[in-house]
Structure formats: structure tokens, C-alpha cells
């Protein structure tokens, strides 16, 4: 028996309304041309978008906000539910966990936020222009890390339980709505939708080298390539800011020995500047290259988790229209 539960969309909506008493809930909501996580309130519950990728902001910002006071922040204890994260973002949490929950130095703030958040990912039933998760071995639906995987099909919400926290959530949900096991036929239906999308993503990305090859390609690329692709880079750092796995930060000091963490990016000038003004990444093309080495060569040597999940946000966000996939395709052969 698969761990699938389902309920009517309308029941789900009123359950969310009830859950708002105990949780801060975030979910993707559309506005004009974009879609992003918004705080859910009784008025916008019906506007939540399911199964369509992907929120503009990566999931990481719920755990590593752009700026946070590490010595005084106590929002970490707030119970949250995040609905609608695509699997690329969910998989992005793996590397964050490896770094921030590293047993030598557990980041207690990060940990509390992870512990106090219920993650309800949603299967992608559509794709966006630059989605290429499958190229890096990531499926467009979650089977781990998230607590629940959600699929919205024909007026029903299906919830596949993936974790202990997910089990508890279903129990809690049953207080507010009538929840039943999803019939086998409907599960089949969902799986069919999922595999169609898998196929489509693969098809859309033919010729794009996979994660086993990207490292070698980056190592072999010559300086001309880095100069060429970085020539339109303006060091805005958007690629790193919206990347679900980029987590470098600055520590800023405030009086009374307070520390503020602010997300940083190796694309910013001065990222590696040390006292005495020496800077190994002074040149823009070196900074540009650094990001590729970090993602495809160095971190893969050091960590188990993927450091690029194929979400394509960096391509969408780049104002210089730099497309990393063009680089990989150019150097594929």
C-alpha cells in the first residue's frame, strides 16, 4: 500500500484555514507575470498554485534569509508550513544540510528552522523553459527530504507521505478534514503525469551534458571560454542569490558582539579580498570561473549532494543573458 492520502480541494482549503491558527504558511501565488511564495491568509488560500514550476525565490531563503541577526533572532521557533516547493529546490536543501548541519559545527538557527518547518513539495506537471533537473538526475517530484509530496488532480489534493513529520501532519490534518487513502487508479494517474514530465524534460534538454561530465568540462575549459562567457557579466550576483544551493555569506558585526549574516556571492567584487587588499578573484572572469569550479568541480569533490539542481533560475535571472547551458553544450564535444 502506497502512502498516499487524498481529500477534496475545498476541504484542503478549509483545513489550511484552520492550520493558520498554529502555523505560518507560505505557498506559491501568482501575480502578473510571476509566481512566488507568499504568506497564506484566509483570503488567498484559493489562489495557491499547485504543480506548476516554480516560485521566483528559491526555497533556501526560508532557512538562510538574505540577512539575519544570528545572535538575537528568535523567529526560528515559529512553526511553519511551506507548500509548493518543486523538487529541484527540495534537493537543493541536501547540500545546505550537509554544510549547516555538519556535526562538527551545527548551525543551531538553521537546524531549528528546519526542525520547525513542514515541507510540502509539489510535483511538477508542467515545465518552464529552462528546467533541466533530469539532466542532473533529479526527478520533477520528491521522494525524500520533503515531508509530503502534493499532487492536485481533478478537484482532489493527493498527499504522498515521505517522512515521520509527514505522518504527523496527516494526523493533524484529519482533525480538520476528511482524509482518505488515494485509490490506486488515481495514484497511477499521478505517476503517469510524472513520467510524462520526466520524458518531456529529457527531450527538451538533449545534448546537455549530465552532472558526471560537467566537472571535466569545467576543468578543461580554457581562459578564452571564461572571458567570452563572462564578458556580459555585470557582477550583480543575481545568479548566486536565486540559486537554491549557493549559500556563501558575510558576517557583519554589530555592537554588543552581535553577528549578522548576509548572503554573499563570489560574483561580487571583493569576495576574496583579504586584509592588505590582496584579492585572488580580482578579475571578473576569474570570479565567473570560480562559480563554475565551485559548483561542478570542488564541491562535488567534497560533498555528497548535488550543487546544481537544474532549476534554471540563474539563466532566467541573468541580466546579461548568460546561459550556463550554452557553455556546457558548446564544450560538450
Amino acid at each position: 500500500m502506497k502512502n498516499y492520502y487524498s481529500l477534496l480541494n475545498s476541504d484542503w482549503n478549509s483545513a489550511i484555514d484552520q492550520l493558520l491558527n498554529d502555523y505560518l504558511i507560505y505557498a506559491p501565488i501568482k501575480s502578473n507575470n510571476s509566481m512566488d511564495y507568499e504568506p497564506v491568509n484566509p483570503e488567498n488560500i484559493s489562489e495557491i498554485v499547485y504543480n506548476i514550476p516554480k516560485p521566483t525565490t528559491p526555497l533556501k531563503t526560508f532557512f538562510l534569509p538574505v540577512k539575519e541577526n544570528l545572535t538575537t533572532d528568535n523567529s526560528t521557533k515559529i512553526k511553519r508550513i511551506i507548500i509548493g516547493a518543486p523538487n529541484c529546490d527540495i534537493q537543493g536543501l541536501k547540500i545546505l544540510d550537509e554544510i549547516y548541519l555538519d556535526k562538527d559545527y551545527i548551525d543551531s538557527l538553521y537546524k531549528q528552522k528546519r526542525d520547525n518547518t513542514i515541507l510540502i513539495s509539489s510535483s511538477c506537471f508542467e515545465i518552464q523553459e529552462h528546467c533541466h533537473c533530469m539532466t542532473y538526475g533529479i526527478k520533477p517530484y520528491s521522494k525524500e527530504i520533503a515531508d509530503i509530496s502534493l499532487s492536485h488532480v481533478d478537484q482532489r489534493i493527493h498527499l504522498e507521505v515521505l517522512s515521520e513529520k509527514g505522518v504527523k501532519f496527516i494526523t493533524e490534518l484529519k482533525n480538520y478534514a476528511s482524509v482518505s487513502n488515494s485509490p490506486e487508479t488515481e495514484i497511477k494517474d499521478i505517476e503517469l503525469k510524472q513520467s510524462k514530465i520526466e520524458y518531456q524534460i529529457i527531450n527538451d534538454n538533449i545534448g546537455l551534458p549530465d552532472y558526471n561530465k560537467t566537472g571535466k568540462i569545467v576543468e578543461k575549459a580554457n581562459e578564452e571560454i571564461w572571458k567570452k562567457y563572462s564578458s556580459k557579466c555585470v557582477s550583480c550576483g543575481a545568479c548566486a542569490a536565486i540559486c537554491p544551493t549557493c549559500t556563501c555569506f558575510l558576517l557583519i558585526d554589530k555592537p554588543n558582539f552581535e553577528k549578522v549574516r548576509q548572503l554573499d556571492a563570489c560574483q561580487y567584487p571583493g569576495f576574496e579580498r583579504v586584509a592588505g587588499d590582496e584579492d585572488a578573484l580580482y578579475e571578473l572572469s576569474k570570479r565567473f570561473k570560480n562559480r563554475y569550479f565551485c559548483k561542478y568541480v570542488w564541491k562535488p569533490q567534497k560533498f555528497k549532494s548535488l550543487v546544481c539542481t537544474g532549476c534554471g533560475r540563474c539563466i532566467e535571472a541573468c541580466i546579461g543573458k548568460i546561459n550556463k547551458n550554452d557553455l556546457f553544450k558548446e564544450l560538450a564535444n
Partner: peptide, 12 residues
């Protein structure tokens, strides 16, 4: 702490 990324030298 092996977190902020500023001291990366290759894979270290």
C-alpha cells in the same frame, strides 16, 4: 566553520 565559503581553496 566551513560554512561561509570565503576560505575555499579548491575543494578545501
Amino acid at each position: 566553520l566551513g560554512k561561509c565559503g570565503h576560505c575555499m581553496m579548491g575543494k578545501y
